[in-house]
């Protein structure tokens, strides 16, 4: 009964893999990080040669991109509809699916780990976290939600077994989420955390909620299967009734 944990820098952030009682943990972690690097090469808007940037510049057609690119963009179109247009890969004026890509790539890594027999794991890329199974017998994963003003503190702890936790906010990179309807960055909601089963979806919902501003409090409450926590710029904290707090 062994635990394994490793972190690397990738995608401009830190990614962590934690495996509990997994066969060949070292190799599985290598594969997760190799996948995340590949995703970064294909999707990063900061890499001149990424498929997404080449698509944006018209150097590639969608058919010429890696198949994952079409899948991701098709899924983003569905999310655009599901979020009433607030999740929009063109919100900044150019193609940018990063509000989905990070969570999606971690979710795929998690699915591959499960398929390989590593059913108890945690994968974290820049604070978007996917867990499955348990960190130890009879234990549940405990994920803190960073305090929106105090970096060394948390404002809540959520717990569970098969848990995805995605947080979007303004306290690290400033107001970087753009409201597609105005074209301007949103700052009313300082932190939005969405908790549910799948990280790609949670990532999108958190991003859409920040773009939405205060109406997100009602929209988030109506989501099926996803719980949430919001802290406004005024310091008021909101949570959904079913948020799995520890």
């Amino acid at each position: 009964m062994t635990g394994y944990r490793r972190s690397v820098t990738v995608m401009g952030t830190v990614a962590t893999v934690e495996l509990y009682d997994a066969p060949d943990a070292e190799r599985l972690a290598d594969e997760v990080f190799a996948w995340l690097r590949e995703v970064d090469r294909r999707f990063s808007t900061y890499r001149a040669g990424s498929d997404v940037n080449r698509l944006h510049r018209g150097e590639l057609t969608l058919a010429e991109c890696a198949p994952e690119v079409s899948e991701v963009l098709a899924r983003c179109a569905e999310f655009w509809r599901d979020t009433d247009g607030y999740f929009d890969v063109y919100a900044t004026g150019r193609l940018d699916p990063s509000g989905y890509v990070k969570g999606w790539s971690v979710q795929v890594a998690s699915e591959r780990l499960s398929a390989a027999g590593a059913v108890n794991h945690l994968v974290d890329a820049g604070g978007d976290i996917q867990t499955r199974g348990r960190p130890a017998p009879d234990a549940r994963w405990e994920i803190g939600i960073r305090h929106p003003w105090h970096p060394a503190s948390v404002c809540a702890v959520v717990t569970g077994t098969d848990l995805a936790v995605a947080t979007s906010g303004t306290y690290e990179r400033g107001c970087h989420v753009v409201d597609p309807r105005t074209g301007r960055p949103r700052g009313d909601l300082r932190s939005v955390t969405v908790v549910g089963r799948d990280l790609g979806t949670a990532d999108v919902y958190a991003t859409a909620a920040v773009a939405m501003g205060p109406p997100a409090l009602r929209w988030l409450a109506g989501l099926d299967g996803y719980e949430s926590m919001v802290v406004t710029e005024e310091g008021v904290s909101y949570r959904s009734a079913g948020l799995p707090v520890a």
Partner: peptide, 20 residues
């Protein structure tokens, strides 16, 4: 509700754009 605060010392996994 009121915004709570507690130490992150005993937690290894934190959601939030901590690392960016």
């Amino acid at each position: 509700e009121a915004l709570a605060e507690q130490s992150a010392d005993n937690l290894t996994n934190i959601s939030g754009a901590t690392y960016t």
